[in-house]
């Protein structure tokens, strides 16, 4: 099963002929992702690593059975590309690009809501269901199939934790990067119910960070979950008022603090790791208790 993507996901790559698009198309193909077509305006008729390239998404979907798109598009073009994918009827859209203007994100999400499209990102590493499919830029070698659902706001920090899990013999059902921007398509509260429903997922790891209230909102859902949750929150040492890279990662007027998130998650019954490499032992602990 896994969530959102699996071996039946047939992927379009928007921006396939660019440096990143081409490199990661190769990486995805090597991983086993069914990349069936690509789009770059003006490059229709070419092939990238054997994948046919079209000028428009409409043309690609009329030639192939496509149900998901991943885009490697410069920030200024993301809004148009995402709307193009949605207008063509694609229901899962992964936006890797960082620095997408906030108002473009608002426009994308408003249309996604109307068309019931699942948007992952922007500013994300993407999504992977190990052994089945990956849509993203994560390194291929650090995952393996297994019972842990992993959802994170940050990319590289989730690599770190996935790598530690895999090293400890704990594979993953699906790993999802929500994205670091203030407005992104999916939140913890959208992903947690999917893991709760997914028969392949036996435990969930949530990787959050300071700022905003997404972790506190997640805690409300965690309190009612049957599956155990382990959490790690980055930013314990961050000074207030300084924006730590991600648009959302800032403690403002005493809100979004590390302490408030730890308190909410602990009260909801989640096990909270104080260092990233403590996560695997905590997961082993909650899994062995047969929850």
């Amino acid at each position: 099963m896994a969530v959102i993507i699996n071996e039946n996901t047939r992927v379009l790559v928007q921006g396939i002929t660019g440096r990143q698009g081409s490199f990661h198309t190769k990486q995805m193909l090597d991983y086993g992702t069914r990349v069936v077509a690509g789009v770059t305006p003006g490059r229709g008729g070419q092939r990238v690593h054997g994948v046919p390239v079209y000028d428009t998404v409409a043309e690609a979907v009329s030639n192939h059975d496509i149900n998901a798109s991943i885009m490697f598009i410069p920030a200024a073009g993301v809004k148009d590309a995402a709307l193009e994918a949605m207008v063509a009827g694609i229901k899962t859209v992964v936006i890797i690009t960082e620095h997408v203007p906030l108002h473009d994100e608002l426009d994308i999400m408003a249309y996604a809501e109307k068309t019931s499209t699942t948007i992952i990102g922007p500013n994300t590493f993407g999504i992977i269901s190990p052994g089945r499919s990956k849509m993203g830029i994560m390194p291929n070698g650090i995952y393996k199939p297994g019972p842990v659902g992993l959802v994170a706001r940050s990319g590289t920090l989730s690599y770190e934790i996935a790598f530690n899990l895999t090293g400890a013999g704990l594979g993953q059902s699906t790993v999802i990067g929500l994205g670091g921007d203030r407005v992104v398509g999916m939140s913890f509260t959208a992903v947690l119910p999917m893991f709760e429903e997914d028969p392949d997922t036996k435990a969930v790891v949530l990787v959050g960070e300071i700022g905003g209230s997404a972790e506190e909102e997640a805690a409300k859902f965690i309190a009612g979950m049957t599956k155990p949750v382990v959490a790690f929150i980055a930013g314990s040492s961050a000074p207030p008022g300084k924006r730590m890279g991600h648009a959302g990662a800032i403690i403002e007027r005493g809100r979004g603090t590390f302490e408030s998130k730890i308190e909410a998650l602990t009260s909801a019954g989640a096990k909270v790791a104080s260092l990233p490499w403590e996560v695997p032992d905590l997961v082993k602990g909650v899994l062995s208790r047969g929850n």
Binding site: T156, L157, E160, E209, S237, M244, A249
Partner: peptide, 25 residues
């Protein structure tokens, strides 16, 4: 220096944990 806001933040946290002090994010 790290790549990714989350991992950079976590790196600062870990430096603190080991008793060091970061010069920057």
């Amino acid at each position: 220096m790290a790549n990714g806001a989350g991992i950079t933040m976590a790196t600062l946290d870990i430096i603190n944990h080991y008793g060091g002090t970061p010069r920057n994010f």
